[in-house]
Amino acid sequence: MSGSYRKINYTIRPAKSVERKMLCDVFRRLNDFYAIDSYRYIGFGAVYFSDFVLFHRMLGIRNMVSIECAQSKDVKRRFEFNAPYKYVELKFGNSWEVLPTLEWKDIPTILWLDYDGLLEGNCLRDIETFFSSATSGSVCIASFNIQDDPNPSSGSPLDRLKNQVGEENVPMDVNASALTGWDRAEIFRRIINNKIEEILSQRNGAMPTGSKLCYQQLFNFHYSDGALMLTVGGIIYGSGQKHLLDKCAFNNLHFCKDGIEPYKIKIPKLTFKEIRHLDSLMPIEAGSYNAINIPPSEIAQYCEVYRYFPIFAESEI
């Protein structure tokens, strides 16, 4: 949401692009809860609005809100200029300030908190807002860059984590060694899931048995587009709507992960010619990889993501 859109053109980060399309595939299945084009999408569109364009084109979502924390008029104007459709309503401010001002009641919502930094207290505030307000069938996703500040201000990584998210949110058995590399992603996921369970438990306290809300994790993506990225999220549904959840059959999508095990998005390095060749052979049995003149590891990776694989080309539009 803050400045990183100027560093990277989000549309051409290959793993991010695959992730976006995978999410889209999952959202399509929400139709069993509500017609997908009746959902609202809330995201941080930056100036590229890649997610907004994709979800509008593929899912027909029209109710869209993009949150940007721009302050100056010039910057705001740039966001407004780049909004791809009039459907996109721009809200300026920090997400934790804007989200509580939105109407949540009876509006099925997909919220993508696409942060580009570490997990902080304010992220947990956003998650609290969503899970204390969103209606059954809504989906919340949060993305983080899990790399630590190269010039950390002070204290150990564990102290900094406690400062960032609040000591009361850090499980007692987390130790310093769990905060390196991908292990940090798992700690973030755990802290977020704990917060979600806590909020839902409070919210459910006063609710009759059939309408108590449950959370089902759907996403636990790890990928590396220059930075180590984590995306976690899932759906809330009324306990009486388990059959709808089952009908969505999220488990049939190999990249949906409901637990600690992540789905690692890996981007094979292939030429256009190889891509076309592999496409023509689909489905490819694992046993036949050796017959193709491409490293088997690249083929295996391609088989997993080919439906979502971006093709970038230089062009003059």
Partner: peptide, 18 residues
């Protein structure tokens, strides 16, 4: 029931330990 619900939460256990 409300006690069992609390014991389900890792955040409760964190608070209890602290």
């Amino acid at each position: 029931e409300e006690i069992a619900n609390e014991f389900k939460l890792e955040n409760f256990v964190t608070r209890l330990i602290a």
